[in-house]
Simulated assay, not measured.
Amino acid sequence: MEFGIFTVGDLTPDPTTGRTPTEAERIKSMVRIAEHTEQAGLDVLAVGEHHNPPFVAPGNPPVMLANIAARTTNLQLSTSTTLITTNDPVRIAEDYSMLQHLADGRVDLMMGRGNTGPVYPWFGYDIREGIDLAVEHYHLLRRLWREEIVNWSGKFRSPLQSFTSTPRPLDGVAPFVWHGSIRSPEIAEQAAFYGDGFFHNNIFWPLSHTAQMVNLYRRRFEHHGHGRADQAYVGLGGQVFMRENSQDAVREFRPYFDEAPVYGHGPSLEEFMRDTPLTVGSPQQVIERYATMADHVGDYQRQLFLIDHAGLPLKSVLEQIDILGEQVVPALRKEFAARRPEGVPDHAPTHAELVAEGPDSRHRLVVPARTVEDSTEKEEVTS
Score class of each variant (00 low, 15 high):
282 S>G: 06
277 P>N: 01
168 R>T: 15
224 H>A: 09
231 Q>V: 14
239 Q>P: 09
273 M>K: 03
177 V>L: 03
193 F>E: 07
212 Q>P: 00
289 R>D: 13
210 T>V: 02
172 G>H: 04
218 R>N: 11
260 A>T: 09
241 F>S: 05
281 G>C: 03
287 I>G: 06
164 T>D: 10
264 G>R: 00
167 P>L: 03
284 Q>M: 13
195 G>F: 08
185 P>E: 14
280 V>C: 01
249 A>Q: 06
234 V>F: 14
275 D>N: 01
210 T>P: 01
242 M>H: 08
158 S>M: 13
221 F>V: 13
230 D>T: 08
162 S>Q: 15
281 G>S: 04
164 T>G: 08
160 L>F: 10
258 D>G: 10
270 E>A: 10
268 S>E: 10
177 V>F: 08
219 R>D: 15
200 H>Q: 08
246 S>K: 13
242 M>P: 04
199 F>C: 03
214 V>K: 05
159 P>S: 13
271 E>K: 03
244 E>D: 10
240 V>M: 10
190 Q>W: 00
183 R>D: 12
234 V>T: 13
167 P>H: 06
245 N>H: 14
271 E>C: 02
167 P>T: 11
228 R>F: 13
277 P>A: 02
207 L>Q: 02
245 N>P: 04
180 G>T: 11
212 Q>T: 10
247 Q>S: 13
290 Y>S: 12
236 L>Q: 13
231 Q>L: 05
161 Q>H: 10
261 P>R: 12
203 I>S: 01
230 D>E: 07
176 F>L: 09
273 M>N: 10
284 Q>C: 01
227 G>M: 01
187 I>A: 02
173 V>Q: 07
173 V>T: 09
242 M>T: 08
207 L>G: 03
203 I>Q: 02
246 S>T: 14
187 I>T: 03
223 H>V: 08
179 H>M: 03
157 R>D: 13
188 A>P: 05
175 P>K: 08
243 R>Q: 10
177 V>Q: 04
163 F>D: 10
175 P>C: 12
243 R>C: 05
291 A>D: 15
186 E>M: 00
230 D>A: 07
174 A>Q: 12
